[in-house]
């Protein structure tokens, strides 16, 4: 079970252990929050969890998360919830932020493996896979990195959220910027917005999840102090009938 209200119902019990899930959407749809809540719920059950933040400093991330009642600093102090700043990892590895060679990415993957292995991490969030891939030189490097990442994650049986941005190409919404991210994913959760008469409703839809018979219907979500809450989208209120 993810422990996130409503999501486990959609997933018919939760995410199968060890699945890699692409959590994708546009800005402001709650990707980071659902990622953190996923970890907090796991840590509250005694699991070891890790969040690798790429897009914002960990201090700022924690500060933002403190606005939610579900977030608990004690989980960090107790060593159940680890938050890593990718820039700090780079410093430790002697890497510089910029464009990376495949060799550099192997070093980074090795660091991720060490985190998961040495801390016995069972829930991992990388926020975002898109930002990491932007550091790579070309599509083949991106493909190799993503496949290597998927390989190691499946070996360790760690349930992982890869946070990603959606893009629109030729009027069609794609689940990831580089088109490779979904290939290694066991599941895809699409977060978005519906514009209803000028008001934006946050939505969540489980497009794919291997290993569980799940709902594929679009749902409306809300970020409450307790975390994400979810109800089915009213059919006559969807963007396309």
């Amino acid at each position: 079970m993810t422990g996130i209200g409503g999501l486990d119902n959609i997933l018919n019990g939760g995410i199968p252990l060890g699945n890699t899930v692409l959590v994708t959407g546009t800005v402001g749809t709650g990707k980071t929050t659902i990622g953190m809540e996923f970890l907090v719920r796991g840590a509250q059950k005694g699991e070891n969890c890790a969040f690798i933040t790429v897009t914002e400093p960990s201090a700022k991330l924690i500060e933002n998360m403190r606005t939610y009642d579900f977030f608990d600093d004690e989980l960090i102090k107790a060593g159940k919830l680890h938050i890593f700043d990718l820039h700090v990892i780079y410093d430790h590895l002697g890497l510089e932020w910029g464009e990376y060679e495949i060799r550099d990415m192997d070093i980074l993957l090795g660091a991720f493996e060490d985190i998961v292995d040495e801390l016995s991490i069972t829930r991992l969030v990388i926020d975002s896979i898109t930002a990491i891939c932007y550091q790579l030189q070309n599509r083949s490097a991106i493909r190799k990195f993503i496949f290597d990442l998927g390989k190691f994650l499946s070996t360790f049986g760690c349930t992982t959220f890869l946070i990603s941005e959606t893009v629109i190409e030729a009027g069609v919404e794609k689940y990831s910027v580089f088109g490779v991210e979904e290939a290694i994913s066991d599941g895809i959760m699409l977060l978005g917005n519906i514009n209803r008469k000028g008001d934006l409703l946050r939505t969540i839809q489980v497009v794919k999840m291997r290993g569980t018979p799940h709902s594929r219907a679009k749902h409306v979500s809300d970020l409450t102090p307790d975390g994400m809450a979810i109800v089915p989208l009213l059919k006559w209120g969807s963007d396309m009938y």
Partner: peptide, 19 residues
């Protein structure tokens, strides 16, 4: 809730308030 047209959000806020 930003508008009475956000009916699902009304339901979610209601759930939260009921708790």
């Amino acid at each position: 809730v930003e508008s009475p047209s956000m009916l699902e959000t009304i339901m979610l806020k209601l759930d939260w308030q009921l708790k």
